[in-house]
């Protein structure tokens, strides 16, 4: 449980938000060309990092907008929040 600084609404309790999992997983550009292995990689495989993770969140009980977050999963500390469509910051 922590406080999240929504880029549109400001600081709100985490329970207003829905976690959307790993960020920057791009939908395959040519789905028809994909092998089963590539589909599995896209659909199911996750980094599930212990440490700095890039992820998506949705302010489900607020503005309902999506945004990206950089969070340390070993202590739940939020490092950075940036909008959808923006490039992920380098380490």
């Amino acid at each position: 449980m922590f406080v999240i600084n929504c880029p549109y609404c400001g600081e709100r309790d985490q329970q207003e938000f829905k976690a959307g999992g790993e960020a920057h997983i791009e939908r395959p550009k040519q789905p028809t060309e994909l092998s089963d292995d590539e589909w599995a990689e896209y659909l199911f495989m996750r980094k599930n990092i212990k440490g700095i993770q890039f992820e998506r969140w949705n302010h489900a009980h607020g503005c309902r907008k999506w945004f990206n977050m950089v969070r340390d999963t070993s202590n739940d500390e939020i490092k950075l929040i940036y909008k959808m469509g923006e490039r992920p910051p380098s380490e």
Binding site: A40, R46, K47, N48, I49, K50
Partner: peptide, 18 residues
């Protein structure tokens, strides 16, 4: 819960979320 951490050490990815 730490299976993915060990898998990453071996260069594998697993379909898990902890």
């Amino acid at each position: 819960g730490h299976s993915s951490v060990i898998a990453n050490m071996a260069g594998l990815r697993l379909p898990l979320e902890s």
